[in-house]
Design a protein around this nucleic acid. Structure first.
Length: 160
DNA sequence: GCCAACGTTGGC
DNA sequence: GCCAACGTTGGC
């Protein structure tokens, strides 16, 4: 099993939106970056675990976890003229952009903020924390995933 | 809202 | 194929 981090702006799609979605499942549409697409297309397998990251918000944080519930398939929003994710290069015959489905697993009672992630020695090498890193889909190691989860548990316990 | 960092585009 | 210009991301 592999581990990933997926960024989303909560104003656009949040962990609460995923929690309330039918079947607690949603397509991850709108990825328009080749590296991110390749991670979805070539790397993501059903059952992989996902850190659900809220970006462009205050504070930015890992808000919970999800799992990959459907492997890569074409992102139909790319060939819908007028759609905000429209890209004329992509057609049903030759799709350029792909997406996966993700299913809600848990929402952390206390989000693990970016500032907090930076304090964890286990995450010293984490891709997210590298300068200039803005890739919206990133691989995460098992140890990193575990460390984030452990911190979320500890924060939840302290908040009770 | 600013702006550094990065990816993409397109002229040459 | 180079690289300047431009657009986007995303933390602050």
């Amino acid at each position: 099993m592999r581990y990933w981090l997926m960024k989303t702006e909560p104003d656009v799609f949040s962990i609460d939106d995923l929690m309330r979605a039918p079947g607690r499942t949603s397509a991850w549409e709108g990825v328009r970056n080749y590296q991110a697409r390749n991670f979805m297309r070539d790397g993501m397998k059903k059952g992989d675990r996902v850190l659900f990251y809220h970006s462009s918000t205050d504070p930015t944080a890992v808000a919970g976890t999800a799992r990959v519930s459907r492997e890569a398939y074409p992102d139909a929003t790319a060939w819908q003229p007028g759609h905000e994710y429209f890209d004329r290069r992509s057609t049903p015959e030759q799709p350029v952009w792909m997406m996966v489905d993700v299913t809600f697993v848990e929402k952390f009672p206390v989000p693990v903020t970016l500032a907090e992630l930076r304090t964890l020695p286990e995450l010293r090498e984490m891709m997210l924390l590298r300068k200039g890193m803005r890739l919206s889909i990133q691989p995460v190691t098992a140890a990193e995933f575990k460390a984030v989860l452990a911190r979320a548990r500890r924060l939840a316990k302290a908040a009770r």
